[in-house]
Design a protein around this nucleic acid. Structure first.
Lengths: 201, 201
DNA sequence: GTCTATAGCCTGATAGAC
DNA sequence: GTCTATCAGGCTATAGAC
């Protein structure tokens, strides 16, 4: 499920749910206030009762989509006794998290291209700092000689890039059923990272 | 340099150069025909003498930006005697290629989110099939037990994700000067992949 | 090959009734 | 809190002069 909440129509939360979905699909410039209003079931003017302008609505939608993600991602990197167990737990759960919320992933992708400095700083501090520190700590334990910042980026990217490229990979040679599945992605990434970092098996 | 050519103003090639740059920066919906015309130095109506509509201009700009990229990327994966040499050559040159052409990278990122099926098929067949096969072949030589399609994606993603996240990484903990540099990125990726795939060092 | 002018539509946003 | 009506302006695209 893309969004957990299921509020009654007409409320501010429902507007945010609709907005998250539309902004994720076609981006800020690809969605009009009229589009959103129609999907919500109210007039465009009514939207301005809940949000002063389009940008505020967009920022509200971002906050709505990213709420509680910070802790959820952080927790993927924490549990487990050995570094190997923590690595496998992180890969499994981070992969599942990205698979179950495409809207979050798409908003993130869009923000990486279009986000201005202030918006990226906001997202970095309120959403990614906490989980990134957890993944960095795991990186430090896995390979003390490797830059933890770069290794954390690599671990996340290894997982995310398989999702990002899914729309185009279906037209590339060697593709097989299941290449898009969370199970296959996490298995592949675990195998790669285990051998690179733990030198076992 | 983002674009090699440096044609005289007013020509079709100059329109394409300008369009590539603008579409890469703000996306299809973020650029108007008037924007492009102004930067080219002609009226919007004159644009329609060279291209029948906005979408044609966009597709022309894509073809222009992606021209010769296929072979350039393919060649990054070919040379070298041992698989290890080929791996290092691929990582070094692919990283350099992505660093020297941000427009290409941004258009690619945007196409992965917004491209419809026909456009993605076009890009896949005319730009990525050839280099992807070269990288897949390298993957097969590096690790015959690993799915070459997935490994090829992982190798490219490991490099690209460091560029993609550069705008937000500067606000994340542990960042250091040079984390964005091609040299540091390729060193990091080579180290990671060498240990994962060759089990040496 | 480029121009000005314009058609027709969509945009974000507001005014004011209910 | 939602509506209809509307404003001012931007959009793609075209017509027709030069």
């Amino acid at each position: 499920m893309s969004n957990v909440s299921n509020p009654a129509p007409g409320t501010r939360d429902f507007i945010l749910d609709v907005s998250v979905s539309l902004f994720a699909q076609t981006g800020y410039d690809g969605v009009s206030m009229r589009n959103i209003a129609k999907r919500v079931g109210i007039s465009a003017a009514a939207l301005y009762h809940h949000f002063p302008n389009k940008e505020s609505l967009y920022l509200g939608a971002m906050a709505h989509a990213f709420a509680d993600k910070a802790r959820a991602i952080s927790e993927t990197a924490g549990a487990g006794a050995t570094p190997q167990e923590r690595l496998h737990g992180f890969v499994d759960r981070f992969t599942a998290l990205m698979a179950e919320d495409p809207d979050f992933r798409h908003l993130l992708q869009r923000e990486l291209i279009d986000g201005d400095e202030s918006r990226l700083r906001l997202v970095a501090e309120h959403v990614f700092r906490e989980p990134f520190e957890a993944i960095s700590a795991l990186s430090r334990d896995l390979d003390p000689n490797c830059d933890p910042h770069m290794l954390a980026i690599s671990m996340a990217g290894l997982i995310l890039f398989h999702f990002e490229t899914a729309p185009v990979r279906r037209f590339l040679p060697g593709v097989r059923e299941g290449h898009d599945s969370p199970a296959m992605i996490s298995e592949h990434v675990k195998r790669l990272l285990s051998r690179a970092l733990l030198l076992t098996k």
